[in-house]
Each structure stands twice: as structure tokens, then as C-alpha cells.
């Protein structure tokens, strides 16, 4: 019995016709418009469309409020560092000077915010506190060298502040604010330099400046350098603190310059 009543539709013909269909499909698709379709994820059910989240504008006031929150974050860190009583008298004096400088920076930024018609944000950055400061300080519990950790923490946050001010220059629209930000940013860089010298007195220039690879020290800690690069860096800042866990690892985090999740928007309050 012939299971294919149309004798003209052989395997060869079937392949030929199939190829023609595919070719026509390609031509039609190429000639079509609005072929993108919806990029929304698929939905189940008949619930109302979700209300899109309001995107608060990122303006100069937001950038300034974020900078002010960074200053208060660093001040809170120095409070914690000093309270632990691990610093030498010389280091305590240095930290004391940094507190004076950061307090002045916060006040300066506050004046700039007011001049822009914004409201000051006189407290630590909420996102940074939740995601970085709290876990970093918690990791000091049981540390094999709290003194080492505190210096590294101070250096990391001074470096973060340095990078944050430099980064803000690219986003601020008011030219006079760019200048004021880097006036403060320059001082944060100076703080970071002094701390790097204190932590690592044996080397001044980062090996990366000479095309050599960067490496951690024998215990796995990033090595700070007073001069870390030819140009100011905006990359993440690695921080390692605490004792080794059962797997031999220490608490590690990378601090990033402020972005959408770190900004202090105008509708936020302390």
C-alpha cells in the first residue's frame, strides 16, 4: 500500500519546497518593520500592569548630598576605629587630623548644597553602611590583627572618597562645583597617601606604574602605595580584614564609587 498518495511529493521535492519556504520567510522577515517585539518579561494572570518605579533625577544636589554622606560615613568609621583603642599615639594624632578635615569637608559640602537650594544630608550613606561598613566592622570580631585591619580600613575609605570626588567631576553640571569637589578630593588623596606610607613604608610607587603585576602580600592583603598610579584611579578598592576562616579565607570586599544605589536622592532623609 502506498502511504504517500501524491507520488510527485518525494523526499527530494519536500526538501526543495522546504528550502523555498525558509528562503521566503527570510525575505519577508528582512522586509518587515517593527520586528523587535516586546522586551517585557512574560506575564501570567490578569493583574493590573505594575506601576513603574519613579526614577528620581540625579542632579548636582544629589551628587553633593552623596558626597556629604560619604564624609559622614568616613567620620563614623574613624569613630569606630578610635573607640577600639588599637592605634598608636602617632596614628591617633593622624586620625584626629583626618576627623578635623572630614568635618570641615562635610560643612563645606553642606554650604554648597544650601547654595544649590537643596537640603543637607548630615548622616552616613545608608547603602554604604548596610553593605560595607557594618559587615567590615563585624569582620573584625576575632581578628588576628585589629591594628592592621583598622589602618587598612582607613586607607580603603580614604581611597574611596578620593575616587568618589574625582568621579563626581564627570557628572556635575555646575563647573564651580567640579572645582570645589576636587579641592576636597585632593585632600582625600593626601590622606590616603599618608596612610599608605604608614602601612607600607617600603615602597612608594605601585608596580603597576612600571607594567608589573599587582600582588597581595604573603597574608593575602592588598598592598597600598602612596602613589598608586599615574592618573587617579576610579576602579574598585579591595579591602581584606579579619582572621582566616576555616577555609583559610578572610573577609574581602570591593568598595565602589557611588552609583544609582549609593546616591542620596533629594527625597531621602536621615
Amino acid at each position: 500500500m502506498n502511504r504517500f498518495p501524491n507520488p510527485s511529493l518525494g523526499r527530494r521535492q519536500l526538501l526543495r519546497n522546504g528550502g523555498m519556504v525558509l528562503s521566503m520567510g527570510a525575505i519577508v522577515a528582512a522586509c518587515g518593520t517593527n520586528r523587535g517585539g516586546s522586551t517585557n518579561p512574560g506575564r501570567l494572570g490578569v493583574a493590573d500592569e505594575a506601576t513603574p518605579l519613579q526614577q528620581d533625577p540625579i542632579n548636582d544636589v544629589v551628587l553633593l548630598r552623596t558626597a556629604q554622606s560619604l564624609e559622614y560615613t568616613v567620620l563614623a568609621i574613624y569613630d569606630s576605629v578610635s573607640a577600639m583603642g588599637e592605634l598608636s599615639s602617632a596614628e591617633s594624632a593622624l586620625a584626629g587630623r583626618f576627623v578635623v578635615d572630614h568635618t570641615r569637608h562635610a560643612a563645606t559640602i553642606g554650604s554648597l548644597i544650601s547654595a544649590q537650594g537643596g537640603a543637607e544630608f548630615q548622616c552616613s550613606n545608608p547603602f554604604l553602611v548596610d553593605r560595607a561598613v557594618t559587615p567590615i566592622l563585624a569582620a573584625l570580631d576575632g581578628s588576628d590583627d585589629v591594628h592592621r585591619d583598622l589602618l587598612n580600613i582607613a586607607h580603603a575609605f580614604e581611597s574611596l572618597a578620593s575616587a568618589a570626588y574625582q568621579d563626581a567631576v564627570g557628572s556635575l553640571t555646575d563647573l564651580s562645583l567640579r572645582k570645589e569637589m576636587m579641592r576636597i578630593g585632593g585632600e582625600e588623596n593626601r590622606h590616603a597617601t599618608a596612610l599608605a606610607s604608614a602601612i607600607n613604608p617600603d615602597a612608594v610607587f605601585s608596580p603597576a606604574m612600571f607594567g608589573e603585576p599587582l600582588s597581595s602580600d604573603a597574608d593575602g592583603f592588598p598592598i597600598p602605595y602612596p602613589i598608586p598610579a599615574t592618573f587617579g584611579l576610579l576602579k574598585g578598592i579591595d579591602l581584606v580584614v579579619g582572621a582566616r576562616d576555616v577555609e583559610g579565607s578572610r573577609f574581602a570586599i570591593q568598595l565602589q564609587t557611588p552609583a544609582q544605589n549609593t546616591y542620596v536622592y533629594e527625597n531621602q532623609s536621615c
Binding site: Q166, G170, S197, F231, G232
Partner: peptide
Amino acid sequence: AAKSIASIIAIESRHATLLAE
């Protein structure tokens, strides 16, 4: 240009502190 100048300020500030030390 502004971003490049900012990146230069960052390191020249560090130069100054280093040289002071």
C-alpha cells in the same frame, strides 16, 4: 578634559604629600 584634569589633580596632590614626607 575636565575628567582628565581631575585625575591629574588626584595624583599631583599625592606627589605633594609624598614630597613633604
